[in-house]
Nucleic acid binder design. Structure first.
Length: 485
RNA sequence: CGGGGUGUAGCGCAGUCUGGCAGCGCGCUUGGUUUGGGACCAAGAGAGCGCGGGUUCGAAUCCCGCCACCCCGACCA
């Protein structure tokens, strides 16, 4: 690809400064902007359209697994938040609190929700009486607020959008299975829609959600070798049920607390998408989540050619819509030369560009250009719609494969601590290490290497041996450590 | 919250040391010619220099205070 013009702000090269590159890509693709309120972002139309695509696909999956959407209040009475000890300890310091309303000081302060366990389970307690009311499977799409000190667009902002699922079950086994199931749903979503390979598994005690018994997660690896938690799912045990008195009568007439789960993904996924696939030219989006999967650029000289190529472009767009490819964009802008249009769509991450010029019309063909590889190939006009569909599938798969080889190439294993310490500097990525399970070793590793325990993968076998840090027996699976966002 | 940096037109910057009435490129507007990888010509619009004080005949430039944002570390989806 050609060098950007000097006069225009260039996108910083990834190799030069990955953080700045990330910011530049977001600006160039007009995904989001910093708001006047510190730590908060404005999601611009193109960025929001990506979130909507994520929502559309994920909402369908959540409903297919039996959950229903509902909506709970933004405000949570202070006393609710304080009912579960671990939970309040984890969240209270990061909350925004409303103390006044209607010009008067409130009797009880209202917390702006950092997550909705407490308000939801207060209601669950009212709704659940019998085992027949279980399982209760609720999801909500909402905004939440956490008073973060250091923020980055999409990855960490004080307010963010997310989906939070909350369920109640009759048995621990069922609830744990639910938490695992939803982690699996996230994994499928990440891999099939985002083209992002992830490692799924459980978190360590130190990394788990405040108030949970177990936290499961999916972890992706970004192009710079840093890990990103892309989704979490928690088995809450009866911790909240006891705090909020969520009880039901069993089939044999006993009174029992429910077993619960909660799980969520957020607008952080948009950040993951950006960092997983984009390049030095700008945004690269997987076709399944691209607001505009195909942009058709007619090329003309004079009115006659304009009419002919624009006509062919509109014709193809119509056929694509008919073939199930929605939101195809015909770039009929006057006053912009074709090259300028190419750059424009490339920056915005449109997966496939179709060029139709007089030469193509003469040969009854269209020119197809992939965003991910830059490969340009002609296709007979009659086969245009079919070729476009096939190429979009190829791009979706190609992005996943590329991300997966990158992930695999940056997943290492070592048994020597000094080796790990050295290599995490030179080659960031996942490091599969034997770990004795102690929080002390985990904390020391973090202190000394800035790497945290990201995940203990589901699909790996126990590999007993000495703990990489203390040498004590590590009987279980290897844990994946990485530096993370 | 600690360390570093930056605030001048929508964006990127120059001007600040050595005070003298704000400039360049891109973008934008209008008209025309263009259109197979960021078009060209012409004419325009647009900021009073992050905010508040001060010093001075005069402050974007000097002094004091504050704020915001960015980057790097401690906490989190």
């Amino acid at each position: 690809m050609p060098e950007p013009r000097e006069s225009e702000k260039a996108i910083t090269k990834r190799a030069e400064d990955y953080g700045r590159w990330y910011t530049d890509v977001i600006a160039a693709a007009e995904l989001a902007d910093h708001s006047p309120v510190r730590g908060c972002m404005v999601i611009r139309p193109h960025g929001y359209a990506i979130w909507e695509a994520i929502q559309r696909a994920l909402d369908r999956m959540i409903k297919k697994t039996g959950h229903q959407n509902a909506y709970f209040p933004l405000f949570i009475p202070e006393s609710f938040l304080k009912k579960e000890a671990q939970h309040v300890e984890g969240f209270a310091p990061h909350c925004a609190v409303v103390t006044h309303g209607g010009g008067q000081k409130l009797e009880e302060a209202l917390y702006v929700r950092p997550t909705s366990e407490t308000i939801m389970y207060t209601m669950f307690a009212k709704w659940i009486q019998s085992w027949r009311d279980l399982p209760l499977l609720i999801n909500q799409w909402a905004n939440v607020v956490r008073w973060e000190l250091r923020t980055r667009l999409f990855l960490r902002t004080c307010e963010f959008l997310w989906q939070e699922g909350h369920t109640a079950h009759a048995t621990a086994e069922e609830a744990d299975a639910e938490a695992r199931k939803m982690c699996g749903v996230y994994r499928t979503f990440a891999e099939e829609f985002m083209a992002l390979p992830v490692v799924s598994g459980s978190k360590s005690e130190a990394e788990r959600f405040a108030g949970a018994e177990t936290t499961y997660c999916i972890e992706g690896l970004m192009q710079d070798g840093k890990a990103l938690q892309a989704g979490t799912s928690h088995f809450l045990g009866q911790n909240f049920a006891k705090a909020f008195d969520v009880k039901f009568q069993t089939q044999d007439g006993q009174l029992a607390h429910v077993w619960q789960t909660s799980w969520g993904v957020s607008t952080r996924l948009v950040g993951a998408l950006i960092m997983a696939h984009s390049d030095d030219t700008g945004l690269v989006l997987p076709p399944k989540l691209a607001p505009i999967p195909v942009a058709i650029v007619p090329i003309w000289k004079g009115d006659e050619e304009r009419k002919a190529t624009l006509g062919a472009a509109n014709d193809l767009a119509g056929k694509l819509e008919g073939a199930g490819v929605e939101n195809v964009k015909v770039d009929d802008r006057e006053g912009l030369r074709p090259g300028a249009k190419y750059f424009d769509w490339e920056r915005r991450g449109v997966p496939l560009r179709v060029e139709i010029g007089p030469k193509d019309l003469a040969k009854s063909q269209v020119m197809l250009v992939r965003r991910d590889t830059g490969a340009k190939s002609p296709a007979p006009a009659a086969e245009g719609p079919a070729r476009v569909r096939a190429l979009l599938d190829e791009i979706q798969k190609g992005l996943f494969d590329r991300a997966k080889s990158h992930r695999d190439a940056h997943t290492f294993s070592t048994d020597r601590y000094d080796d790990f310490k050295k290599r995490i500097e030179e080659a960031p990525g996942f490091y599969a290490l034997r770990w004795c399970g102690s929080g002390k070793c985990e904390a020391e590793i973090k202190e000394e290497t800035q790497a945290t325990l990201r995940v203990i993968p589901f699909d790996s076998k126990p590999d007993p041996g000495p703990c990489v840090k203390c040498g004590a027996n590590a009987p279980g699976k290897r844990a994946y450590f990485a530096r993370a966002y």
